[in-house]
Simulated scan of single mutants.
Amino acid sequence: MRRYAVFPILALGGGCAAFALRLAQWRTGFEPDTGLPVPGCPFGIAAAVLAAAVFAACLLLVRRLPEQAEDAPLFPAGFSTADAGLLTLAVAGVFLIAAAGLADLAAGMGVQGLPGMALLSAADRRERLLLGALTAAAGVFLFPAAAACRRGGREKPRAFNGAVLLAPVVCLVVRLVLVYRQDSTNPVLAAFWVEVLALVLTILALYRLSAFAYGAGRTRRFVLYAVPAVTLCLASLADGGLSAVLFNGGAALTLTGFLLQHLAVLGRCGDVQ
């Protein structure tokens, strides 16, 4: 996998840098009384430039990866690994995504002590319940996908039901609608663009992941969405909020795990562009 190590390094390195810039933006780039952005804040501009640079670099670097043909390995063969460390990343991320759903469900049911609980109206609680149910369902569907990648000895991975991988995509599309509906009431785009774009890229990366279960997997397209998705999910951790932190941390771990697993398979196969 060493020949492809640039992609996880780009995703995680860019994510850590973007997190630091985003955190600095929250501390210095908004008026404490009104929440309005401070004009010309260098950290906000730098975070946007960094995100664009990661995507541009990934767009150029994916040429190193094989352009897979119609006979590309089906899921989970193209992601199977006996490395417990790689499997742990994806599984831990899936559990965090499910935990994010449970946090939203708890908030929707009126559990006290959760961030933002006092601000939720009855309508907001119903919306939070739906948001939590969908996010938890996404985690539940992703778990068997992550578990199916476990390879023992020379055992050939079994075929996987692609509908199980498509279900989280559908759940997260609805989550995107609900999250954007909440964020759109905020007139300050700088306050929520990272979270929304991170969710969009996560959905696209999971959609490209599901394509492998239908024999339509394309490594370049999966990596092109997964790398910037990890970067922006890590940057979104600076935005705070219990559910958002759990979800974005879980999405970053899950995509990193699947990315490393797939690159490891490519490395074992000796594919060279």
Rank of each mutant, 00 (worst) to 15 (best):
L204A: 15
L89F: 10
L61N: 01
A106W: 07
P73G: 03
V111Q: 08
A52G: 12
P168M: 07
L65E: 03
F43V: 09
A100R: 00
G13I: 10
S236V: 12
G78V: 02
G152H: 15
D71Y: 03
L36F: 11
L86M: 10
A167V: 13
C41E: 10
V200H: 04
L176R: 04
L263W: 02
G250M: 02
V54D: 00
E155V: 15
A20I: 15
F30P: 08
A145C: 06
A57M: 12
Q25L: 14
F141E: 03
G215A: 10
R218W: 08
V177G: 14
A147E: 14
V245C: 08
Y4Q: 05
A77V: 11
L253R: 01
A138H: 04
R158Y: 13
A159Q: 11
F160W: 15
A198L: 13
F55W: 12
L242Q: 03
A198N: 04
H262E: 02
Q261G: 03
V38D: 04
V140L: 15
L237K: 01
A77G: 08
F212P: 00
G93S: 05
T219Y: 06
L255P: 03
R181P: 04
L176D: 08
Y180S: 13
A57T: 11
A163Y: 08
T256C: 15
T254Q: 05
A226K: 01
Y180N: 11
A198P: 00
L178S: 01
L260R: 04
A98E: 06
Y214I: 08
T81G: 00
R208I: 07
V200S: 03
F222M: 08
A137P: 00
E31I: 13
A20Y: 06
R175Y: 09
A191H: 11
Y4C: 05
A84S: 09
A118D: 14
F75R: 00
V91R: 02
G44S: 09
V38N: 04
C233L: 09
V188G: 01
P76I: 02
A145F: 04
S80Q: 04
L96P: 12
D71P: 07
V188I: 15
A99F: 10
L12D: 05
N186D: 15
Q261N: 07
G29L: 05
L134M: 13
Q112I: 14
V164Y: 12
L131A: 02
T219F: 07
G116F: 14
R64C: 08
D83G: 02
L178N: 01
I97D: 00
T135E: 13
A72H: 06
G101S: 05
A84V: 06
E70H: 05
L50N: 00
L246I: 03
R218Y: 07
V227E: 02
G270Q: 09
D83N: 11
V94E: 07
C58G: 13
A52K: 06
L120E: 06
Y207R: 06
V227N: 02
L21R: 01
F222G: 04
A106M: 14
V245M: 08
G241N: 11
A190L: 11
L10W: 00
A238F: 11
S236M: 11
S210N: 12
E195K: 09
E195Q: 12
